[in-house]
Design a protein around this nucleic acid. Structure first.
Lengths: 350, 350
DNA sequence: GAATGTAATCAACACATGTTGACTACACCT
DNA sequence: AGGTGTAGTCAACATGTGTTGATTACATTC
């Protein structure tokens, strides 16, 4: 019945000694064990646990438990440093959704950089593994996933982790939580067309939005003019949109409207137009996609297609959890609804 | 020398059997063990490891290793759901810095919601613990840390985790990575004063910026007028800044300049002024703090005090790592340099 | 009163690993 | 040839836990 003074770690044995019982009994009490314990003894054991501030050794438990695999750690693979997209306002809200949903479902999130995994195979093999993470969210733009030399690492990830989902384009047919980029682009462009615009430039990032842009034009009997399209940097959309807009204006061929791939580009385009003395929407109309928080706060307020960013993050987590037990290799992707938000930059309110 | 067919988990024993040696030798090879192994035997063991795809059991290793404590998981405590600040553009970049630096130093990040810890003591006791995390970053605004009823949980955190740092205001004298908010406010306000403004309103969030605002006025022999100050919501600075600006204008007492606590509020204030027919900077000048990415993209471009957001995140991680071995309970805080960025919203360029 | 059953407890095993005392075989030196 | 040292290997122990076969004590039944 002696309290061992200043032992660094308290074990079940210590508790057993203190309570004057065998170690097994302590284990029974802790786990509502396979054997019964008399109420009196149980009380004594609990008191001893309290008194000694006993805390089960996590590793010993899991060792005994069998399987070293963890059950509640979700890995997120993003571009990392050289290609960091986490600081984009868009992913911003996606992340907030991921965090909140993970908290709620008692899941933990761990971040991985795709490029670091690529550079350091030892790290990759040790960490992107069922022993370390139970699920994986791939937050990788196509420009990364489709680069030659990047395929093998992706294959390995997919082979190793069963519970996996994409938050950008679907990779290798994996399920994804996405919105229809082509449809979003279609909505934004068609809106401009309905307002009478015929010369609609496009600051593009990806092919899908390009598809939507093209389809909207063709369905409305407008020509698809490649010279009106300019490609943006995905890493710095604002800076490159600003530059591209200036260059476009310098050609002298000023469009009556510009559709930009995201709000950051839209805001930058407005700035460029403003700096050249052109008014939005009077001289040039603007629409875009995303509906980031500041879209409604700039002047003119941005007409844009709202994407449920936060919900995308939340669904991604929920999707993973729900799919953990079920073995359906071809689970369907989840396409979230989008909505055109008409504000001032398109000129519809005039 | 038989390859056991279809065993679920491969152990050192399996490798030893396969290679025709004892298990100890396998352990020696894996850890460059305390005993030497002949080159030939080593080769055979390595081949067996490869062949059987052996992977050490993490939990057994750590159990043997002693101490259940982890060494490379950094917990970040934020407000969470009802008080989520992770989706603010400011914290956005701080986070990016945290991630990048953590990756580089082979550390992992785990997020905790302060309110969830508050609600669920069982979860709190199990997870905010040296067995689960090695370090802690407190990303909690004063409004949370100073709320009655929140003290105990903070005390427990601080008591349990040795390696701890604040990324907002310092709590209980803990080291913090911060910038001088008062100094930043002072710079922004003094700039307006030097441009001749005498009626400078203030959309405020915290006391420190208020201090800087007050000091700038007093040092320049201007009256400190409480009626020019309005308090913003820290959760939705843009929306509340927009509202407060409109209300301010409705009183008829229009200031010649407004200093806003952060860029989001600044952008919203410009919007409100614009919507009431006032021009920035001609009718009302604006300065603020943060220098978020879009600050330079709106028109007029925002004059603001740049805060090294990304570096704050990076330093926080580096600070933790460097302090891990050293037992200095009163480590100094780290105050990062700030810089006034003059653009168009203040009118200095006219 | 003897046999049977049951509740409560304990000693011992198993989990996969890292380390140490002991043992063997062989090279080297005198 | 005999003694000494060492490289290489193995059996055995230890880590802290969950579980099971065995044991004890006691109540119940015939």
């Amino acid at each position: 019945m002696n309290k061992p003074n200043e032992k660094d770690v308290v074990t079940q044995q210590d508790v057993a000694d203190y309570a004057g019982v065998s170690r097994a009994v302590v284990s029974y009490v802790l786990n509502n064990g396979p054997r019964k314990v008399s109420a009196e003894t149980r009380q004594r054991v609990i008191a001893a646990i309290e008194e000694l501030a006993y805390r089960p050794n996590k590793h010993a438990q899991r060792l005994k438990q069998g399987s070293a695999a963890v059950q509640n750690i979700i890995g997120i693979v993003t571009g990392g440093q050289s290609y960091n997209i986490l600081n984009r306002p868009y992913y911003n809200l996606v992340l907030a959704g991921l965090f909140d949903s993970a908290h709620q479902l008692n899941q933990h999130i761990r971040f991985f950089s795709f490029f670091e995994a690529l550079k350091d195979p030892v790290f990759f093999n040790k960490n992107i593994h069922p022993d370390e993470i139970s699920s994986l969210i791939l937050l990788l733009p196509k420009i990364i996933t489709e680069t030659p030399g990047h395929e093998e690492i992706l294959d390995t990830m997919i082979e190793r982790i069963d519970n996996i989902i994409c938050l950008e384009d679907s990779i290798r047919g994996l399920p994804a939580v996405i919105f229809d980029r082509a449809a979003a682009a279609f909505m934004a462009v068609e809106h401009l067309i309905k307002l009478g615009h015929q010369q609609i430039a496009f600051l593009a990032i990806d092919d899908q939005r390009k598809q939507g842009y093209r389809q909207a034009l063709l369905e409305n009997n407008l020509p698809y003019d490649e010279t009106l399209i300019r490609i943006l940097s995905a890493v710095e959309p604002a800076q490159s949109a600003y530059q591209q807009t200036l260059e476009m204006l310098e050609t002298g061929k000023t469009p009556t409207a510009i559709f930009t791939a995201n709000d950051e580009a839209g805001i930058a385009a407005i700035a460029a137009l403003h700096d050249r003395g052109l008014r939005v929407p009077d001289d040039v109309a603007i629409t875009s996609i995303d509906d980031i928080e500041l879209a409604s706060m700039i002047r003119p307020a941005l007409t844009t297609v709202n994407v449920p960013k936060r919900r995308m993050g939340m669904y991604a987590i929920q999707f993973l959890i729900s799919q953990r037990e079920i073995l359906s290799p071809h689970a369907a992707s989840m396409v979230l609804p989008i909505e055109l938000i008409v504000r001032d930059s398109c000129g519809a309110r005039r």
